[in-house]
């Protein structure tokens, strides 16, 4: 069943984004930034974890999850060490995605040439 929910939740996020893209002058840059902030807010309210438990990959693959990972890391650090702990913990959960993306983008710039 989780596969069905994953399909529906991820699909729903994308559908909403597509409607915003088609109806307004907002670009993907605007919309993804909006969604990341949305993810952070839902996470701070404790709601995003429910979505992850419910839809698994369907909630972890949209960019909203990036906002959630930031808040999750921040809150964990907050619990341990107050505000300094928050700053220490902020990027811990999303480090895998961010670090790997930077690495592979740099690697791509070495081996690939656009439009060949």
């Amino acid at each position: 069943m989780i596969y069905l929910y994953a399909f529906l939740v991820a699909g729903a996020f994308c559908l909403v984004a597509q409607i915003i893209y088609d109806k307004t002058k907002l670009t993907p840059g605007h919309i993804t930034s909006l969604f990341v902030v949305l993810g952070a807010i839902l996470s701070a309210c404790g709601l995003y974890q429910y979505l992850l438990d419910f839809a698994g990959g369907g909630a972890s693959v949209p960019i909203t999850n990036f906002g959630h990972l930031l808040v999750e890391g921040g809150l964990e650090g907050l619990k341990e060490n107050g505000l300094l702990g928050m700053l220490l913990g902020l990027l811990t959960k999303c480090s895998a995605t961010l670090g790997f993306t930077i690495f592979i983008a740099t690697f791509a710039s070495i081996v690939a040439k656009p439009r060949q």
Binding site: I2, Y3, A6, F7, L8, V9, A10, G11, A12, F13, C14, L15, A17, Q18, I19, Y21, D22, K23, A55, G56, G57, G58, A59, S60, V61, P62
Partner: peptide, 26 residues
């Protein structure tokens, strides 16, 4: 004319498939 229905449908399906792929990887 804007193809909002077609675009919405394709986005939904593609997003959904990405969700399934992500779950399969998990």
């Amino acid at each position: 004319k804007k193809h909002m229905v077609r675009n919405g449908f394709l986005a939904f399906i593609s997003g959904g498939l990405m969700g399934i792929a992500a779950q399969a990887l998990i």
